[in-house]
Every structure is written in C-alpha cells, then in structure tokens.
Amino acid sequence: MNLALWIAAGLLAAVALAGGITKTFVPKEKLARANGGGWTATASVGFVKTLGVLEILAAVGLILPAVLGIAPALVPVTAVCWVLLMIGAMITHLRHNEAKFIVLNLFYLALAAFVAWGRLGPEPF
C-alpha cells in the first residue's frame, strides 16, 4: 500500500510540476493557441500564472515533506487541495465544452483522493 501511495503521489507531482511550469513560464497567448483557444483564452494572465504557481507548490507538497521528514502531514493536506483544484478544473472545462480534459481531471482527482485517504488513514507517515 505504501508503494502504491508513493507512486500515486509521484505521478501527481510530475503532472503538477509539468502543468505548473507550463502555466508559469509559457506566455498566455501561446498557451491559448496550443489549446485551440480553450479556457486560457478567456482567463487573465494573473489567473493562469497563479494556477501555475499553485501547481508547482502542489508538486513540492506531495513529495518533499515526506522525503525530508519535515511536516509529512502536509502530504495529505496537499492531496486534498489537489482534489479541490481538480473540481475547479472540471467545472472550468465543462463551461468551455472541453470534455476530454474533464475525464483526465477526474483521473487526477481519484489519484489525489487515494493519496489523501491513504496518508490520513491506513498508511500515515
């Protein structure tokens, strides 16, 4: 179980880091063109950058506290925050008729819920 939780947290951290770096450092106009318009076309630059920073922080919060042994309770807290972020992402993609992303966000939500459940319940640090 512990290994499965580490794999799930690592996968989520990789996804969060990739998404965060993209949203933080790629210009909004380029993101909007790459997504065929999508939600980034209507969002402000500040909002997109803020989401990027939050995703980078999520990547850090899913791995580093447990690896360093400093406040490992932050891992399930971060996973719960990721669940909330994915709910917001699904609502945003639903409003923009981007159904393929909703399925992906649901998968990430399930992984984060698994990490939160596992680290709060059967396999705490």
Rank of each mutant, 00 (worst) to 15 (best):
A71T: 05
L85V: 03
S44C: 06
V80Q: 03
V53Y: 13
Y108R: 02
A58P: 11
C81L: 15
V67Q: 11
G61V: 05
L85I: 06
V75F: 11
F107P: 00
K49M: 14
L94P: 01
A110W: 05
V48S: 07
Y108K: 01
A112M: 13
Y108W: 12
F107H: 06
S44E: 00
A110V: 12
P76K: 14
L54K: 06
V60I: 15
T78L: 11
L64M: 00
L106P: 10
A99R: 08
T42G: 12
T78D: 06
V75C: 08
W82L: 12
A71N: 06
L74I: 00
E55M: 08
I63R: 04
A110N: 01
G46E: 08
G61H: 10
A99L: 01
A73W: 11
I87W: 03
G61L: 07
T50D: 05
F47Q: 11
T50Q: 06
A58S: 15
T50E: 14
T78Y: 02
A71F: 13
I102F: 04
A59F: 06
C81A: 15
I91K: 15
V48I: 15
I70H: 15
I63C: 03
L68M: 12
I91M: 13
L62P: 01
F114L: 12
V60Q: 14
T42S: 08
R95N: 07
P72W: 13
H93Y: 03
V83L: 08
F114D: 01
L57E: 04
N97G: 14
I63N: 02
I91P: 11
A58G: 09
V77R: 11
L68K: 09
T50C: 09
V75M: 06
L51V: 01
V77E: 10
A73K: 09
P65R: 03
P76T: 12
L62I: 04
H93I: 09
V53N: 06
M90G: 10
F114V: 07
H96L: 08
F107L: 15
K100D: 11
G88F: 07
A66Q: 13
A89H: 03
M86V: 03
A58H: 10
V80T: 02
V77C: 05
